[in-house]
């Protein structure tokens, strides 16, 4: 089948502003949008720049706007979006070239969440693992699925309005540890998130939940963090 793909292009070494180029390629309805981009790059215009690696939705490299919504290009099939496709970089992060945006601010927000287990208590004397019940493990299961693709944060109107907001992905990272029964850093993280750039900026638009390619119920997770902040309880 014939696929028409309109792609946002911007080369900072040549262009003063972005523009769109349209390419027509021969493909299949089962092709990933990433396959179509690879074909354009391989056969028509090698200078087209985008990030990709695993090509099956687990590395988080290729979040982009496809027909106006955030998706992973490798997890979106032509049959899902039709043969007329528009591809643009995600919003809210500076475009470096074509579909590549500056991810440093995104990772900086992640790092502010103290995204690592905090537990200064002695390890079990038997030299084995810390114990955790299956129920306690299940409590934060969803937020461990995050692949840091930024689809959620860059779909969030609050983040577009104010990029000082840590954003949904960072809060998911905080949630992953706050609700881990082995962790002792919840109060530090809740304190960070209670600042002006924290959860108060979430207005439950639900864009993040819709954008998440890992089906994490992000708005719900943010709600749980907000609740923990109010009640001081983690259950």
């Amino acid at each position: 089948m014939e696929i028409t793909i309109k792609i946002f292009r911007y080369d900072p070494e040549k262009d003063t502003r972005g523009h769109y180029e349209t390419y027509v390629v021969e493909g299949d309805e089962n092709d990933r949008v990433l396959d179509v981009l690879e074909l354009v790059k391989g056969k028509t215009d090698g200078s087209l720049a985008f990030r990709r690696s695993c090509a099956h939705g687990v590395c988080g490299s290729d979040a982009m706007r496809i027909n106006g919504r955030n998706h992973l290009a490798c997890k979106t099939l032509v049959r899902d979006v039709g043969a007329n496709i528009t591809v643009e970089p995600v919003l809210g992060l500076k475009v470096k070239k074509d579909l590549i945006v500056d991810m440093d601010p995104f990772f900086d927000n992640y790092k502010k969440m103290l995204p690592y287990l905090i537990n200064d208590s002695p390890l079990p004397a038997d030299g084995k693992e810390r114990l955790q019940s299956p129920e306690n493990r299940a409590r934060f299961d969803e937020s461990t699925k995050c692949i840091l693709c930024a689809a959620c944060t860059t779909s969030c109107p609050s983040y577009w309005a104010n990029d000082a907001y840590y954003g949904p992905a960072a809060i998911v990272a905080a949630h992953r540890f706050i609700f881990d029964s082995r962790d002792e850093g919840a109060s530090q993280r809740l304190h960070i998130l209670s600042e002006t750039d924290g959860t108060v900026r979430c207005h439950t638009a639900y864009n993040c939940t819709e954008a998440c390619p890992r089906d994490i119920k992000i708005t719900k997770a943010i709600g749980e963090v907000k609740m923990a902040m109010v009640t001081g309880k983690l259950d």
């Binding site: 690592y116 693992e129 810390r130 955790q132 299956p134 540890f177 962790d183």
Partner: peptide
């Protein structure tokens, strides 16, 4: 065995047995 226990100690969320072990 020690390598896997070390990963758990670092925070890795392994699935658990009913007894709470990896």
């Amino acid at each position: 065995p020690q390598a896997v226990i070390e990963l758990e100690n670092m925070g890795l969320p392994f699935d658990r047995t009913p007894e709470g072990r990896i």
